[in-house]
Simulated scan of single mutants.
Amino acid sequence: MAASGAARTQLRVGRLVKAHGLKGALKLELYTDDPDGRFVPGAVFTLQVPESSPWHGKTVTVREFRWMNSHPVVFLDGVEDRDAAESIVRAILWIDQDETAGAEDDAWYDHQLVGLEVVRDGDVIGRVVRVDHLPAQDLLIVKLSGDPDREVLVPFVAAIVPEVDVAAGRVVVTPPAGLFEELPGDDADEPRPAEGPAEDAATED
């Protein structure tokens, strides 16, 4: 989520994925390594919802957080029944920077990532131009140095982006083959002309 200034910078910590039970509980998809520390009673979150949602422009306050059958579940003030819970499903929860600064070593804000050089095997191959937040994972959108008209979608996971150094202005990538370039060998896969007796038979005709 892009920020308009330092005071408005926010960190995404979860998404409400499903109503649970009849008393307003909601199952969570977590984007934080410290859910028990984030979702304490009284914690306030900004909601990312469509403008058509009755929750647009509002915040929510945690009433209770618990684990049910290994699934994280949250109760929110003002969400007292299943109908209210259904109305807020798919909302993404954000928290202000000043409430989270320094709390997680592997969490960055979009404005910190955009503009970083992308380094592969010691060479700068492009630059991060934006961050896309998808339900399954985040993506770094990289504009390639040698082909500025092309953008590559890089999954923002440790296996592919093992190092983020904001101070040095770079991210290090170890992408799988084919992510940044077309794999060679397409021509080699084409069938070759027949050899031997079959070729002789063709010349006899």
Rank of each mutant, 00 (worst) to 15 (best):
93 L>S: 01
15 R>S: 15
102 G>N: 02
116 L>I: 07
65 F>D: 03
74 V>N: 07
54 P>V: 01
59 T>H: 09
94 W>T: 14
57 G>T: 11
73 V>A: 04
134 L>T: 11
90 R>S: 08
90 R>D: 13
109 Y>T: 15
130 R>K: 14
123 D>H: 05
49 V>A: 00
100 T>F: 14
21 G>D: 08
94 W>P: 05
24 G>S: 06
31 Y>N: 04
40 V>Q: 15
25 A>Q: 15
101 A>K: 14
62 V>E: 07
74 V>L: 06
93 L>A: 02
99 E>C: 04
39 F>C: 07
75 F>W: 15
113 L>V: 05
29 E>N: 13
102 G>K: 03
80 E>P: 00
84 A>I: 00
112 Q>S: 05
75 F>A: 02
18 K>V: 00
59 T>A: 02
53 S>L: 08
55 W>E: 07
51 E>M: 05
41 P>F: 02
59 T>C: 05
82 R>Y: 04
58 K>F: 01
114 V>I: 15
128 V>P: 11
19 A>M: 01
92 I>V: 15
64 E>T: 10
29 E>R: 14
65 F>C: 03
71 H>K: 10
101 A>D: 14
120 R>L: 05
32 T>F: 03
29 E>V: 09
129 V>M: 04
85 A>Q: 06
45 F>S: 01
114 V>F: 01
35 P>L: 02
57 G>V: 08
34 D>H: 09
27 K>S: 08
132 D>Q: 12
84 A>R: 08
61 T>A: 06
40 V>Y: 05
96 D>H: 08
77 D>Y: 13
101 A>H: 12
58 K>M: 08
129 V>A: 03
62 V>C: 08
76 L>M: 06
53 S>I: 11
67 W>F: 15
50 P>R: 11
22 L>Y: 07
28 L>A: 02
133 H>D: 06
20 H>D: 14
120 R>A: 04
